[in-house]
Write a protein that binds this DNA or RNA. Structure first.
Length: 657
DNA sequence: GCCGTTTTCGGCCCGACTGTTTTCAGTCG
């Protein structure tokens, strides 16, 4: 039976269970999360903004502050919901909506109204009161509703371009509370608003984070540097880059930070914090703390926002106060904890929670100190370094960049892997010069010979050409070409013959089973005809999973983050079939895929579907992507036992169909 | 507007930085 987790959870970790069929049907509809959810959370945010705009400055209606915050909280919840709110409503009605934390009677009925009629009367009324382009101003950094209200009361400003024009013409200066300085600031913010507000891929910004980390580490008076925020939580996309530094000279560190060459604009700069915009459009925060506050600051700055709020509430309920400087006793005002993050969690009555799990998706509830369930779970949690082999690796026989020997050599020497599967594309994928039946068999034969030579210690990789390539790339005339000898000793490394077989439109494969059965392991994936309806696409994958020759379904949803959503798949149904047929689902570690996503990983584990974490390497450097896949797996609460390529190769092969 | 091991009222996470209304509101993370 399938289990679905609604996150985050202060109410229930699971939706009420009905009969299996019902849940399957309900989950089937929930695959396509985003559209209505985004539309609805968007309107809730706009309602909040308009309420704040409407909150008369003279008239101190404090309740209104909480009212608009309630709308924001509800919007946050909907954004984090791993299922379609429309399906939830269709399946469970208004009670389904009430299951979501922070959504009560008033907001649920507004959501219902939106689903039924496509609009919300309450929002329309607020809008008619203030005929501005709300979209222009919600999320415009540095200019909130209060400031905007003062402006629109005096000037006919209705849109962002109106505001920009007014600021340029110096019309804002003179309105009470707005000086020349503030006017300039508003202009600057509008300018910056137009560059890069979107979230960046974890893998794209990874090198930059490491570079800044190194820069900060090398500063004098700096003892610890940690990249925190969603980076530390290994989220697939990063909104801004946060750094935490321990130093006894914050002033110096902050000045060095805001003067880095990567900085486009200093947004704010104080005694302990600085906030900058980088040249690539990303925002970056720095917090400098003394050693005795490192743990508290680490917790505070790692987030997530929801996890942090939940912790501070927990502290509050225990007559404690939690902030970035430490955990304090309200009565005595004494600091109870601060230097160590682990101790901080303990003092809150919790076990330490790994950053990847800090999303307020039920982790706080079950991490109670001494909880056996939690300790077991954490003992088994997948660790960086647990992956023993990579089951999706490409060679230059198709679209990879290096030979099988080279991919094997670097897997062993640079990434400490024990085995790889060579999964070149198959013939129908013409763009990658996919292999036909004979070529696959030839490759399998060659792989057998490599394995024999590894065993006998005669395996040899000529690495000289890489040296030459490097020289050419550097355009140097250096004739000193070092001869690098290949390592003849790869220990008990094993190369598996395999393929990334193309799943055709009807779910059949482009290579017959009698050929596939001669390979060690077989992965299958969709690469064409993305825009078929969900039932067709799902049946296509199901047929592949039911094929006795297929061991793994590679990148099951086909999404490319920030580029395409992936083909429509009924994930819960695919999971049911995967479980039934002992088919493995892949977590593709390439940072633009990370497919399966964290929520689906958690769903797979709840339903006892086995997974693997692969790099999808087309070059030896790509093995490094495994770190992203492992991070994603941890975000899905994956244990070592859930991920089959944590096993030695002999045991892995026994688990296949 | 939401919520409840202090449950139908009275709370709601917490502190830094900015600019300006020199004691605090607005905004942000």
């Amino acid at each position: 039976m399938l289990v679905l987790i609604v996150s985050p959870t202060s109410k229930n970790t699971q939706l009420p269970k009905q009969n299996d069929e019902k849940i399957n049907e309900y989950q089937r509809m929930s695959y396509n999360v985003k559209l209505a959810n985004v539309e609805i959370s968007d309107i809730l945010r706009k309602i909040s903004f308009l309420l704040e705009l409407d909150n008369d400055i003279d008239n101190n209606k404090t309740n209104l502050n909480f009212k608009n915050r309630a709308y924001i909280k509800a919007a946050d919840q909907i954004d984090n919901l791993p299922l379609s709110i429309t399906s939830l409503y269709e399946e469970r009605g208004i009670n389904g909506l009430l299951q979501i934390p922070s959504i009560g009677k008033a907001i649920s009925s507004k959501i219902e109204e939106y689903i039924k009629t496509g609009k919300i009367e309450y929002y329309e009324i607020l809008k008619s009161k203030y005929p501005i382009k709300v979209d222009d101003f919600v999320g415009l950094e540095g200019i909130g509703p209060k400031t905007l209200r003062v402006i629109i009361d005096k000037l006919p400003v209705r849109s962002l371009s109106d505001l920009e024009k007014a600021a340029r013409e110096g019309k804002l200066n003179g309105i009470s509370g707005i000086s020349k300085k503030k006017e300039e600031r508003i202009l600057k913010r509008i300018e910056l608003h137009n560059i890069g507000k979107k979230r960046h891929l974890l893998g794209d910004i990874y090198p930059l984070v490491k570079q800044i980390e190194k820069y900060l580490t090398n500063l004098e008076n700096v003892s610890i540097v940690t990249a925190v925020g969603s980076f530390r939580r290994m989220r697939e996309t990063i909104g801004d880059i946060d750094f935490l530094v321990v130093s006894d000279n914050p002033d110096k560190v902050i000045n060095s930070f805001v003067n880095m060459p990567e900085v486009k604009e200093i947004l704010s700069k104080g005694d302990t914090k600085a906030f900058i915009k980088l040249n690539n459009g990303l925002d970056s925060d720095l917090l400098v703390v003394p050693k005795e506050s490192y743990g508290a600051a680490l917790q505070y700055f790692t987030g997530s926002k929801e996890h942090g709020i939940a912790l501070r509430r927990l502290a509050q309920s225990n007559a404690l106060r939690l902030n970035e400087w430490g955990l304090f006793d309200n009565k005595s005002n004494q600091k109870i904890s601060g230097e160590s993050e682990e101790q901080l969690y303990n003092k809150l009555g919790l076990e330490w929670i790994p950053p990847e799990l800090r999303e307020n998706r039920g982790e706080i509830e079950i991490a109670k100190k001494g909880s056996k369930e939690w300790q077991e779970k954490m003992k088994g949690l997948l660790k960086y370094g647990d992956i023993k082999g990579d089951l999706q690796v490409h060679s230059n026989s198709t679209d990879g960049k290096m030979s099988i020997e080279e991919m094997a050599y670097f897997a062993r020497t640079n990434f400490d892997l024990d085995y790889i599967a060579i999964t070149d594309h198959t013939k129908s994928l013409r763009i990658a010069r996919g292999l036909d039946e004979q070529q696959l068999l030839d490759q399998a034969h060659k792989i057998q010979e490599f394995n024999d030579s590894i065993k006998s210690g005669t395996f040899f990789v000529d690495l000289n050409k890489h040296d030459e390539e490097k020289q050419v790339n550097r355009k140097t005339s250096n004739n000193e070409k070092k001869r690098i000898k290949g390592d003849r000793n790869l220990g008990d490394f094993r190369i598996l013959s395999s393929a990334e077989v193309n799943i055709l439109s009807d779910g059949s494969l482009d290579i017959p089973n009698n050929i596939l059965d001669k390979l060690d392991i077989v992965g299958a994936a969709i690469h064409t005809n993305f825009s078929q309806p969900i039932d067709v696409q799902t049946n296509r994958l199901i047929k592949a999973a039911q094929n006795p020759s297929v061991d793994i379904v590679f990148h099951p949803t086909g999404r490319i983050i920030n580029k395409r959503d992936g083909y429509p798949v009924d994930i819960p149904k695919l999971m049911t079939i995967a479980k039934e047929t002992n088919t493995i689902l892949e977590i593709d570690s390439h940072y633009n895929r990370l497919d399966l996503r964290d929520e689906y990983i958690r769903m797979a584990i709840q339903n006892d579907v086995k997974l693997v974490v692969d790099s999808d390497a087309h070059h030896p450097l790509h093995y490094a992507f495994l770190e992203f896949g492992i991070g994603q797996a941890r975000r899905g609460w994956a244990g070592r036992n859930d991920i089959l390529n944590t096993l030695p190769v002999s045991e892995l092969l026994k688990k296949l169909k």
